[in-house]
């Protein structure tokens, strides 16, 4: 084991989102049916590598519960689980 392995590491995911509020419309090709919750997390703003994430907990049309976030620093989308 080369280093401690963290659980729930975010993985890149293709997401299409609405322009005006950034709400995800489809995740990995699956259409979003409902948004359950959305929240913003900011941390390490005092360092040179701040973290700013807009999280979305959604249900896709195939019934899957997904948590994705938009990295507001890099502009990329990630799946948290």
């Amino acid at each position: 084991m080369s280093g401690p392995r963290r659980l729930s590491i975010p993985r890149r995911v293709p997401v299409t989102a609405r322009d005006e509020d950034g709400q995800p419309l489809s995740i990995d090709g699956r259409e979003v049916d409902a948004v359950r919750e959305s929240w913003l997390i900011e941390d390490r703003w005092w360092t040179e590598r701040p973290l700013r994430r807009r999280y979305w907990e959604v249900v896709t049309t195939c019934g899957r519960n997904e948590i994705v976030f938009h990295d507001l620093v890099s502009g990329r989308w990630w799946r948290q689980r």
């Binding site: 401690p4 963290r6 729930s8 973290l51 689980r81």
Partner: peptide
């Protein structure tokens, strides 16, 4: 608040 920081193996 960051899930990836909560637990390690």
């Amino acid at each position: 608040r960051f899930p990836e920081r909560r637990a390690v193996l």
